[in-house]
Amino acid sequence: MDILVVLEDNHGSLHRMSREAIAGAQQLGESITALAIGQHASLLADKLSGVDLAEVLTVSHELVSSYNADGYAEVVRQIIEAESPQLIIAGHTYQTRDYMPRVSAKCDIPFIPDVISAEDGSYVKLVLNSKLNATVSASSDTVILSFQSAAYSDEDLVPGSCASRPFEVNLDTAMVRSETEEPFQEDAGDVDLESAELIISIGRGIEKEENIPMVFDLANALGAEISASRPVVDSGWMESFRQVGSSGQTVAPKLYFSLGISGAIQHVVGMKGSKNILSINKDPDAPIFEISDYAVVGDLLEIIPKLIEALQTEKNS
């Protein structure tokens, strides 16, 4: 086995970033084994039946039927011990960040997280709030990697076939010390950002709450949904169900129109799949411009009223 990809169960379906991780792994090695853990393990294995993999290992043990860091870390450790992969790869998700460092410490294998590209033992990751990239290399033969969202595309998955094989793990209750309750959602709201065609998203550059109605005027004129970045939600200016980013929604509209969003990675991972990105920001060096198709350098508080005006003139004529 060259590469082990640890899959993530996203409420019964395969996490998007697990598919991306496999696509990435396929570019890095020949023999790829995927690992599915928990009550939906065989379900996840089925979803990969058309993908070119050496095999899918399934682990069903009552102590890991749903996610917990203690159990997951131990399962991955036992598989590494048994199968000796050279690379262990997962999507850079919240869950990976929760248990993978424990695997790193258990097995004494370095964990390089948040990787956006990999080749020949050197890995590029985001640093300094994604303002810079860094090339990292490891001194050991075995490395754990987590791939940043959209670092690889699941459209590039190499088709093929694979079999699945149950893997017996040894777990006892002493190993699992935490008690995990059922996941729940708060404040779901009735806004459907995921299927919206046009989203206007507000960032810190809106400056103050009083400026928000202006954006709703624009959204009305365009027939758009409104979302926001975390700072705006944290300030209490927007409901949390409108948040886009790693701790909020992932969206992929036809047009993502960002207003005063700087483009921190936590936000970008939630919207970079958008077909078109149009951004207004005062700061010509804002990272959001790097992923934008259209970069408007200017003051949104001046431009928005003009745009609303122009849209109205357009409508009347």
């Binding site: 004494d108 294998i109 370095p110 390089i112 050197s122 640093v127 994604s130 810079l132 990239n133 860094a134 090339t135 990292v136 290399s137 490891a138 001194s139 050991s140 490395v143 990272p287 411009f289 790097e290 992923i291 934008s292 198709d293 259209y294 970069a295 408007v296 350098v297 200017g298 003051d299 001046e302 431009i303 009223p305 003009k306």
Partner: peptide
């Protein structure tokens, strides 16, 4: 012993073609 090190840092190169719009409002 150190198990991983940063070899190099660099400013991300944008691969996307971006149209920059400047000028007044």
């Amino acid at each position: 012993e150190k198990t991983q090190t940063i070899k190099k840092v660099f400013v991300p190169q944008t691969t996307k073609k971006t149209e920059v719009i400047e000028g007044n409002a």
